[in-house]
């Protein structure tokens, strides 16, 4: 589904990302871990064509992302609050995204009804604009919006951060469910090793922009990661 070739990103003399090659097959749930500055968000930003690679390129379902915009219809993401439109109510925001992805109100409402638990009654019908919601609730809205329109690739940067424990557990279930679908490729980054080992089939560790580990998740994975980061 996604493949990169000699992908690097350099700012001045500093190389922040340097990936020789990476293949993410369709349907995989892919986890990206690494310390701050490891290049996780840089990689996701490159994937969304928000920044330009210094060398190499990314191909998303046969589309080279920095050449064509054809990857947009089947890719969705939530990176940070710049993916939210502050002056809309959550409902309006969901409908807006829905319309961009060719879904009418009924479709969006049907999807939202699956997330009532996740929203915990704090998102819909609150008479609040997104900008007035708490950080955690904003994040919930952004994450759910990225599920609208049956995207084939979903990119979530640090989805667990800022969420309360209950919501974290629910989010894990949601991501697992998505991962079970063969046609959906989920890319998640996280600082929480436990969460990421639970939801991802494959974990890639980035360190200073380079891939240092590429693991198929098993029972030993958490131990392995803890030793890596602890040592």
């Amino acid at each position: 589904m996604i493949s990169t070739e000699t992908l690097t990103k350099t700012y001045g003399s500093q190389t922040v990302l340097n990936i020789e090659s990476l293949e993410i097959p369709k349907g995989q749930s892919f986890g990206l871990v690494g310390n701050n500055g490891a290049g996780k968000t840089t990689f996701f930003s490159l994937l969304l064509d928000l920044i330009q690679p210094t060398t190499g390129h990314i191909i998303n379902n046969e589309v080279q992302v920095d050449k064509s915009e054809a990857w947009k219809p089947f890719t969705s993401a939530f990176i940070d609050e710049t993916f939210l439109i502050g002056y809309l109510t959550p409902e309006e925001y969901f409908y807006f995204i829905g319309e961009l992805r060719g879904r009418n109100k009924a479709d969006v409402d049907a999807l939202l009804s699956n997330f009532e638990d996740f929203f915990h009654g704090e998102i819909l019908g609150q008479k609040k604009y997104l900008r007035d919601l708490s950080k955690g609730n904003q994040k919930k809205a952004g994450i759910v919006a990225s599920f609208i329109g049956n995207p084939e690739v979903i990119i979530l940067d640090e989805p667990f951060a800022n969420l309360d424990p209950t919501t974290q557990i629910r989010l894990k279930e949601i991501i697992k469910e998505l991962a079970d679908k063969q046609e959906v490729t989920v890319l998640v980054s996280s600082h929480d090793l436990i969460h990421v080992t639970e939801v991802c089939e494959r974990i890639v560790v980035l360190n200073k922009g380079e891939i240092v580990k590429d693991i198929q998740t098993s029972k030993e994975t958490l131990k392995e990661l803890e030793t890596f980061f602890g040592g």
């Binding site: 969304l48 915009e69 947009k72 219809p73 940070d80 993916f83 939210l84 502050g86």
Partner: peptide
């Protein structure tokens, strides 16, 4: 400007 990254990665021509 406050949500330009969204606009740039959404299904928008």
């Amino acid at each position: 400007s406050s949500y330009y990254p969204l606009m740039m990665s959404q299904n928008i021509q």
